[in-house]
Amino acid sequence: MGKRKLITGIVVGAVVGGITALFDGDTRSYTKQRISRCKDMSSHVVRNPADAVNNVKQSVDKFYETFSYQAENAVNALEQVEQTLGTVSDKLSSKRK
């Protein structure tokens, strides 16, 4: 019950906030432009689904390449930290003997 009231309150607050913001002329103009752009983009996707699929594929490929590159960098950094800790640990062990 509490969860439902929270979600309802958030939605109502967002709607009221959005309507209140539209009293400003600049906000209305910006909103109109964004809705028009969204409509144009969705119309293009409906008319050219192959382009949309190709764009999504390219985006996923780019994301995968970037993710792989960053993961490699993270692994290399962890290996360097591990080597440094090993060196420090060896030095401390040799000093204790």
Rank of each mutant, 00 (worst) to 15 (best):
E72A: 07
K32P: 00
T66C: 08
S94Y: 09
S94L: 07
T66P: 00
S42Q: 08
Q70S: 06
Y69I: 01
K3C: 02
N48R: 10
D90Q: 10
A71G: 02
A52H: 01
T87I: 12
S89C: 05
Q58T: 00
T84N: 14
V15Y: 04
I35T: 09
I10F: 12
K57Y: 03
R37E: 15
G18L: 05
T27F: 15
A77G: 04
F67I: 02
A21P: 01
D40L: 07
P49R: 01
N54I: 00
N76S: 14
N76C: 03
I7P: 01
K3S: 11
A71R: 11
R34E: 12
T87E: 15
R4L: 15
L85W: 05
Q58F: 01
R96L: 14
V16S: 06
S43A: 13
K62F: 09
R34H: 11
F67T: 04
A77D: 04
K57N: 02
V11T: 07
I10Y: 09
S68H: 09
G17C: 10
N54Q: 06
I7Y: 11
N73S: 10
T20R: 09
D90H: 06
R4N: 10
N54P: 00
D40Q: 09
T87K: 15
F63I: 03
T8V: 10
R37Y: 14
D51K: 00
E65C: 04
L78Y: 04
Y30H: 12
K97M: 09
I10R: 06
C38E: 15
T8N: 14
H44G: 05
P49T: 00
S93C: 05
S89R: 05
